[in-house]
Structure formats: C-alpha cells, structure tokens
Computed example of a mutant assay.
Amino acid sequence: MHKPMAPEDWREANRAMWDERVPIHIGSDYYDLDSFRREPDSLRGFEVEEVGDVTGRTLLHLQCHIGLDTLSWALRGARQVVGLDFSEPAVEAARDLAASLGLGPDRASFVAADVYDAAEAVPDSAYDIVYTGVGALCWLPDIVRWAETAASLVAPGGFLYLAEFHPMTDALDDETGGRIAYDYFSRQPWVDESPGTYADLDAATVSNRSVEWQHTLGDVVSALAAAGLRVDFLHEHDITLFQRFGSLERRDGYFRLPADRPRVPLMYSLRASRPPEA
C-alpha cells in the first residue's frame, strides 16, 4: 500500500474549516435540528438493517461531527454511545443536542480528539460496535493507521461498521457521472479553497482551505483485514445522499442515476468483526 502524501498543514486547515462551519450547520435547513429533536433519527435505512439491533450494546462513533447519527443509535437502544470528533465546536454542539434530548453523559458522551488518537482519548478500551458514518474517510491521509486504530477499539465478538461514498464516484465526471474523468488510484491530496459548505453553498466563510484524499475500496478492505478484523460483508449501493453529479435524480429519498442509465456504485457499506475470545 502506498505511503500517503499530506501537506504539513492538513490537520490544522481541516480543523479550522470544520470549526467555522459548525454554527452554519447548526442553523441550516440541511441538518434541521428542530425536526431532529422532534423525530431524532438521522440514520439511513440500509445502515439500520445491516447494523441490526443495538439494544444494550456500547457504540463508538468516530468522526461524529455534531452527533446526529451518534444520538440516533442511542435512541435506538444502545446502552451507551460515545462520539469523537476533532472539532471542539462540533463536540460542544453534540453535547448540547444530547442534553436537549434528555440524554445524559451516562448514555451519550462526546470527546474532542483526533481520530488517530481515539484509543487514548475515549473512556473505554473496547466497544461492541465501532461506527464510522458517511463522508469521514476522505479527511484522513493514512487509511492503514485509521484501520489499526478503529480495529483496536472493537471488543471481542464486536464489529466495525462503515458506510461511505463509493470511491468510484471520485473517478467520474462531475456533470454526468457517466465517464471516467479522474484517476481512481490517485494518492495525491486534493486541496480545495471553495467558500461555503454543503449545508449552505452561499454561506460566507473565511477558513476555506481543506485537504482530502480518496481511498480505493481495495485499500480500505485490505487495511481492515490486516488490522485483524474479518470482513463479514461488503455491499455496494446505487444510491447516494446528495447531488454528486448533475445527472442524478431524487427518488425514494435518495439520489440515483436516471432509470434509463446503466448503474454504477455510489455508496458502499461493510461490516468487519473481531472473533470472540476463546
């Protein structure tokens, strides 16, 4: 596996970018926190089905942002959830949201730390479920280190669950999603300086430098296997959560390619487990 390349300021630039966008996200229609407080469930249907019943289990959510998915798992019955994010404002927002839902620290707690430092930062050494939600891995340069860290936090008999945008989408042209336009195997960091945010494209922002990476499906699966987890399944999905390509149509709550077009994978999900101790 190739050694990742990263600008020296990647972490500081990304943290500043996310810190500035937290208040925008809190007030946005995209996250719609008023509706979430009334019906607190932000999870996708395939995630709920694939993770299964979380009643009585502990769950660690890596790169949790403002905690909607974390709290959704708590309210689906998880005994205790812990969310981790490197943005202090995001963690504070998550704590406030948990309190507004009547979830105390014994049920839902949040930690401000870099994901690579998670093993030292979270309150327990292992969890029944380690969960990573959509749009997280692209912010990390070293997928091997991520896999080693995440795997170390899976309890015997537990599993890691990951739902992500499919790396194939990074190779397709932005307008149609119908032709190969970029290198699928590129390890070059992608540096962007666009203002605004996906939750409000017209928002006035100052900290606009961000650094992302693409990770092939093979690299993600291989990293988890090398970290000692057994891949239980890898599912590819023909849906996505936003208008990734101009040609996508919104149907049944998701964005899809037109019905008369050949389909390509737009998202994927996987579960990788740690065998019970003998």
Rank of each mutant, 00 (worst) to 15 (best):
T216V: 09
S186Q: 09
H65K: 03
A278D: 14
L270D: 03
A74Q: 06
L234D: 00
G228N: 06
M17Q: 07
T197F: 14
A112N: 13
P189R: 13
V54D: 09
A16W: 03
D192G: 10
T70C: 09
A94S: 11
V220L: 08
A94T: 01
V191A: 12
L153H: 05
R95D: 01
A99N: 10
H215N: 08
F242N: 08
F185C: 05
I239C: 14
Y254P: 01
A118C: 11
A225F: 02
A6P: 04
G45N: 06
D106N: 09
R256I: 01
P89T: 13
T149Q: 14
E249R: 13
E47W: 04
A225S: 15
Y30G: 02
R230T: 15
A199N: 06
K3N: 10
P195C: 10
R11A: 10
L71K: 06
I129L: 15
L217N: 00
I66N: 02
T205G: 03
D69C: 02
A6I: 03
W10S: 05
R230Y: 10
M267L: 03
S87A: 01
E236I: 10
G218N: 11
P4V: 10
L62R: 07
A147I: 04
C64A: 12
L137Y: 05
F255Y: 15
I239R: 14
G27L: 02
V154H: 07
V144A: 15
W213K: 09
S194K: 12
L229G: 12
G177M: 05
W10T: 04
Q63M: 15
L62T: 04
S87L: 03
V81M: 03
L43G: 01
R230C: 14
P105Q: 08
T55G: 15
